[in-house]
Computed example of a mutant assay.
Amino acid sequence: MRVMVFVKATSDSEKGFNPRDPWTAECMVAMGKFNEELQAAGILRMGDGLTPSSQGKRVAFDGAKRLVIDGPFAETKELVAGFWLWDVKDMDEAVAWVKRCPNPMPGPSEIEIRPLYELDDFT
């Protein structure tokens, strides 16, 4: 089962990460170790962090019209700060791995797990 694991953005992640900040350095070490564990377990397919939404754009669709919207985007709690793509046996395994994850933010944070559609879902 493939799942996308989203690290939800916070006001801290929307400020961007400062490599000189002691928390950032500590978090990078902890996340690096966690990613190595995911790799060793054969679960990790891909993962990365995203820059703040101030550096992003959205394209809104309405029929044939397209509207480009510049970041930052207002609803921080709805944004994604990073992601992993995992291959796990089931949702329980994905939850167990997320519970082992270091807190990705200096304060309260959330990680969301969503299964990907598989070809069998359409047959």
Rank of each mutant, 00 (worst) to 15 (best):
V95S: 09
L116R: 01
L50T: 08
D12A: 15
D120R: 13
V5C: 10
E78C: 05
R2G: 01
P104L: 05
P72W: 08
P72H: 08
K33D: 06
T10E: 10
K65D: 13
K99T: 03
V29T: 13
D87M: 01
N35F: 04
D48I: 00
E110I: 02
A40F: 00
M1V: 01
A40M: 07
F17S: 06
G107D: 14
D90L: 07
G42M: 07
E36L: 13
A60C: 09
A9V: 09
K65H: 12
T24Y: 07
M91I: 12
E110M: 15
I111D: 02
A94V: 07
A40C: 00
F17C: 00
G47H: 07
G42K: 08
G49D: 03
M46H: 12
M46I: 00
F6C: 02
G56I: 04
K89L: 02
K8A: 12
M31K: 02
V95R: 13
F34Y: 12
V80K: 11
M31W: 11
E14F: 01
E112C: 05
E14S: 02
L44T: 05
N18V: 04
N35W: 03
D21V: 02
E14C: 05
A30E: 02
D21G: 02
R114T: 06
A74P: 04
M105W: 06
D120K: 12
S13G: 06
K33I: 07
R58F: 06
Y117P: 00
N103A: 11
V68M: 09
N103S: 07
L79K: 05
A41D: 08
G82N: 09
M4I: 13
V59R: 14
T24D: 05
T10W: 04
P108Q: 13
L119H: 15
L85V: 11
E36Q: 15
W86I: 04
P19V: 13
V98K: 09
K15R: 15
M46F: 10
K65E: 12
T24K: 01
P102L: 07
L44G: 04
G49Y: 09
W23D: 09
A41H: 08
V29M: 03
K99D: 14
E112V: 12
M46E: 15
K8G: 06
K77I: 01
W97D: 14
L67D: 15
S13D: 01
L50K: 04
W23S: 00
Y117C: 10
E36I: 00
R100I: 02
M46K: 08
V68Y: 05
A41L: 00
D90S: 09
D120A: 14
K57F: 10
E36P: 02
N18S: 11
V98R: 10
N35K: 10
K57G: 06
V29C: 00
E37L: 06
F122Q: 11
Q39K: 14
L85W: 04
E26F: 01
F17I: 00
W86S: 02
V7G: 01
P106Q: 12
F6H: 08
K15L: 02
S53Q: 07
D120L: 01
V88R: 03
V98E: 11
K8L: 14
P72E: 12
V88D: 14
V5S: 09
M46C: 07
N18E: 06
S53D: 08
S11Q: 14
G82T: 03
V95N: 10
E110F: 11
V59T: 13
